[in-house]
Design a protein around this nucleic acid. Structure first.
Lengths: 336, 336
DNA sequence: ATGAAAGCGCTAACAT
DNA sequence: ATGTTAGCGCTTTCAT
């Protein structure tokens, strides 16, 4: 059973392929094609199970109905959960997703963007690493819709959806302060990415407002887990006065859990703990871990809605859509 | 800056596009094109940053260098972790991934396969729901490489990579029996999918060998979490004699944890617990949960290797590649 | 050793 | 109201 083309359909019906094309693309009315013709074509097409060749269509129209999704790491639950939602909405709207993990690696990301362009991707959803500014600007200059999330690129005007990182850590730190903790550490990455910067600023703001002393550990993102754990461990062990720790993301939070558990540090009696991002493990841990939950569904929803609107040229106006969502501090048992 | 085509290159160089095409596709030698010509073209192409249009190439060659990946749910860690590895290897070998989650929904999967075919995907990696046999057979009949994993479709000859489900649960159940548990329940899905069937059989075999009584709860896969939790809870509460439970997968395992925790059931004192699949939460739970760990990396590695070989027509022989990997029973503290 | 030209399947401007 | 035809950018056969 060879694959049918539009010409085969036209020949079988003794009409021109133009007519078939118009009918198939819903432009029959506009072209004033007779109802019976429409009926006949549709019926036949359906009967023989004809499917237009999307590749040929894309080549002709320049649209691929494909969205490129670049997250930091698809195996991290935060990104996987968002990818899942985006995928759902995209497929429902006739878009396929091609995706990849950037590993926060600028070079890899550059290559990936080139690959996606090459593939005639219609729109981009990107969790941008640093150093990718120019590539994003090129994309935009060439008229591609791109929406960033989780972080943004200062100086690059794009659509993006973020959470209120600064307030989130400010709020969490305040909780700790209000509970009477006085030596609160913040553990994060050596990173100037906006989300991490803002989380640090939120922490600092609360600490300084209360005339406490900030104590920050920034680990190397690219180190392997074992080494990160050791770094955290020696930080904790060398700063005996620490009575509470705020972790900058879910990964660091679980690393912290591993450190405390293996070092026999009791939560919250010895040290209190709050982590950015919520995870099932935080809910199920003993004691349950207080966490800053990002609104995963809302983020995904905003991202894909903005992109789909751009793809359909709505809104007509050119102003960038930049939304900031609130997080929820889930207060559990990891603070006294 | 308009995108350059092969014709532009040819014109600028005052040669024919055929020559350019041959050189670009490494067929210059074979066509005995002069070294200086090759040099000149390559240099120019590089200079102006020309990239061939993959769409046009695909239309012409029928190859898209795209792999379709259909997992049950990309937000489940087991699938996300595998997807991640597959993605890495695929990109390294010049293949893009387009993916989607099937939700174990036959209709959705059928549509997705149709969409992928339509998109001229070169090869398929599928976690098949039931009822998809005919579609898979069509794919194979039409010459597409397809490799299944996690489960297979009895009666359909394909490449696949599985784990030794039967032995895994047999082994885990034996552990429980050896420790003296006598009322061991197995909680799984109402499902005739091979992986679930085999897990059940392994459990049964161990139980029957020891003249114990099997006690199985099978919940509805499609129910929402809350209801599944309630179902598990009432099962446990109505079977007071149960002293150990084996869960059929990671999702069910965490549901079990939630039930025990909220019902005040102590692990392992009141009930022992083992779960299929390993998860960070099992490692960090108090007590640490004994689990059957699947070799995630090995699975991904096998899957993509088999597919890539097929795509490159290696091995030439037609016999199906079917591999079964061993799991590892990580004995921790959830049994006495 | 290099080039002309057909054709992959589709859309759309331009006839009629 | 329907058809003719010229591409989209590429590969590849056939000619020279």
């Amino acid at each position: 059973m060879k694959k049918l083309s539009i010409v085969d359909i036209a020949n079988s019906l003794n009409i021109s392929k133009t007519t078939v094309s118009f009918i198939l693309n819903g432009r029959a009315r506009e072209k004033r094609i007779s109802d019976e013709m429409i009926e006949r074509v549709l019926k036949y097409v359906n009967e023989v199970g004809y499917k237009p060749n999307t590749l040929a269509k894309s080549l002709r129209t320049g649209k691929s109905h494909t969205i490129g999704l670049l997250v930091q790491d698809i195996s991290n639950h935060f990104f996987a959960a968002i990818a899942r939602q985006i995928e759902d909405r995209a497929y429902k709207n006739g878009y396929k997703i091609i995706y990849s993990s950037t590993d926060n690696d600028t070079r890899k990301t550059k290559e990936l963007i080139a690959l996606f362009r090459d593939q005639h991707v219609d729109g981009y959803i990107i969790v941008p690493p640093l150093g990718i500014e120019a590539d994003i600007e090129d994309l935009i200059a060439d008229g591609f819709p791109v929406v960033l999330f989780d972080r943004y690129l200062p100086g690059v005007e794009t659509d993006h959806v973020l959470v209120d990182n600064l307030f989130s850590t400010y709020n969490a730190t305040r909780l700790l302060i209000d509970k009477g903790y006085e030596h609160i550490a913040f553990i994060s990455y050596e990173s100037t990415q906006t989300q991490m910067e803002h989380r640090k600023q939120g922490y600092r703001k609360a600490i300084e407002e209360s005339k406490l002393k900030p104590n920050i550990l920034e680990v190397d993102f690219y180190k392997e887990e074992k080494l990160i754990i050791e770094e955290i461990r020696s930080f904790i062990l060398n700063n005996k006065n620490i009575d509470a720790v705020l972790f900058g993301n879910n990964y660091l939070g679980t690393c912290g859990l591993k450190v405390f558990r293996s070092s026999g540090i009791k939560i919250p009696d010895d040290i209190a703990l709050i982590s950015f991002d919520d995870l099932e493990v935080f809910e199920l841990y003993t004691p349950e871990i207080t966490a800053i939950a990002q609104p995963v569904e809302a983020i995904a929803e905003e991202v894909i809605t903005i992109l789909l609107n751009r793809l359909n040229n709505v809104p007509k106006d050119d102003s960038k859509q930049q939304v900031t969502l609130a997080t929820e501090l889930k207060i559990r048992k990891s603070t006294r």
